[in-house]
Design a binder for these strands. Structure first.
Lengths: 252, 252
DNA sequence: CGCACCGTTGAGTTACATCAACCGTGGTGG
DNA sequence: CCACCACGGTTGATGTAACTCAACGGTGCG
């Protein structure tokens, strides 16, 4: 198992849950002040470096919590090494399943990550006492289920080009949600993934990902900068390459 | 929207929740007798014929409930018609998401289906009053999430042969769970799916599904009977064709 | 400097899709 | 009653999207 590096958790460690920047985004949004205090009493922070494993498939995990910053990737690996990424967790998302002692995937930090964690038993105890918490978790997991199913459609039925476009749109859409005006302009995306990792998410080889990005560049839709960055030159065109109709669901 | 055919719901309509055969399998297992009474007060039954649509992607759905018998398939369809099945719901599984008014997939009965349903608002009201209910839903949706992610690995990384073997193993495993002795013997599976539907589940064309079944037959592992039935001749061999290690997770 | 890592691109291969023919079965209506 | 057709399944021939193998360039680091 993993022992957390306690570094870099400074600013969070001092903060009260009441003023937590992720409160509105996370399951804590479903609690009142007194309930929040109870959560605060059992929380702890953990930080992870990029590529650091948070837990492994099959591990008994005595730990759940909210991602305060950074991105966590969940992956499954076959005995012969074939790898499939099955979820990306971002700020405010909840990692781990209450009432389940075993995991069935690996959780890896894709960027520097800070988690606000709880040990499972005391958390489950609070879960039984605080009704809103259960609702929050249920809503989050419904959303994750939706996202997983959207991804199943991608993996099972989309072409390589559609897959890559869909991948980029996830990040672009998020940015547009924050600054709607960006939709008309060129928009720079910073993605924490190598070509190989994108391939693991999309069910493609890294070469195919690279080729499709080059093709989208040739068509004037995006401009990858050779590193981890991509500039979206034409959001609407990119969207139309995903194979989805209009501005479909993803995250509700 | 769909108006339910009330036929065939007879035996269920009379039954009390207390003696319901699906009680132990469903979220009702998490309720006490008094709470069960409250649920019973707002329940209603619906029956569906094979291939009948229960609801469609994008519909506002005012209805959630437990599958009492039969199988329900959830599918997603792209604008050009490409189809991906994203879940199979069976006895005891819960259909629909409390707190979500919109669906993002189609639900279709694959066999004759009887549902024990609730209108969303009164159900959500009870959900807030009965803590166990939320726990049940959370556990079920965690399981579904696990299954969805297992399926993502299949769709993204498995070969056609592994996909078909994995598909068969789902049904075989279920039967083995009921009668462990069957594992050593030939075991007949009755599946409610055509080749095309299997293909939609596996992200394959119907021809490829057919060819892989023929190949598995040539190898003496299974014996499809030309209709919807398949006899598993060698469970261990079939398992080893799935690409998974040993007897992996699927449903916990 | 040399090496490890990431990305790109090309050439050749392959697994699966597509297109198409054919068979058996069950339902239907003339 | 049986001719017909719709439907599901199998199999073959062919095409192609994506994988694999391989070479090469840039960048950062010890």
């Amino acid at each position: 198992m993993v022992t957390a590096t306690a570094r870099n958790s400074g600013c969070h460690a001092q903060a009260s849950c009441l003023t937590c920047s992720e409160r509105s985004r996370s399951i804590c949004a479903y609690t009142g002040p007194e309930e929040l205090r109870q959560l605060e009493a059992i929380r702890f922070f953990r930080s992870y470096e990029p590529r650091q494993t948070i837990f492994m498939d099959g591990d008994p995990v005595d730990f759940v919590g909210t991602v305060l910053s950074g991105m966590v990737s969940l992956t499954k690996i076959m005995p012969d090494g074939r790898t499939q990424m099955v979820a990306m967790l971002r700020q405010g998302n909840f990692l781990g399943h209450p009432y389940r002692a075993q995991t069935s995937y690996n959780a890896v930090a894709s960027t520097p990550v800070v988690m606000c964690g709880f040990r499972r038993e005391p958390f489950e105890k609070l879960l039984r006492k605080i009704p809103g918490l259960g609702q929050g978790l249920l809503e989050q997991s419904s959303k994750e289920l939706d996202a997983a199913r959207e991804w199943m459609l991608l993996l099972g039925r989309k072409t390589a080009r559609e897959k890559v476009a869909s991948f980029l749109i996830i990040f672009a859409r998020e940015k547009v949600a924050q600054h709607p005006s960006l939709m008309q302009k060129r928009m720079h995306l910073d993605m924490p993934y190598t070509r190989a990792e994108m391939g693991d998410y999309l069910g493609l080889s890294l070469e195919t990902v690279s080729r499709q990005l080059s093709a989208l560049k040739n068509d004037g839709i995006v401009d990858p900068d050779g590193k981890r960055g991509v500039t979206v030159l034409n959001y609407a065109a990119l969207l139309s390459e995903t194979g989805d109709d209009a501005d479909g669901g993803w995250l509700a």
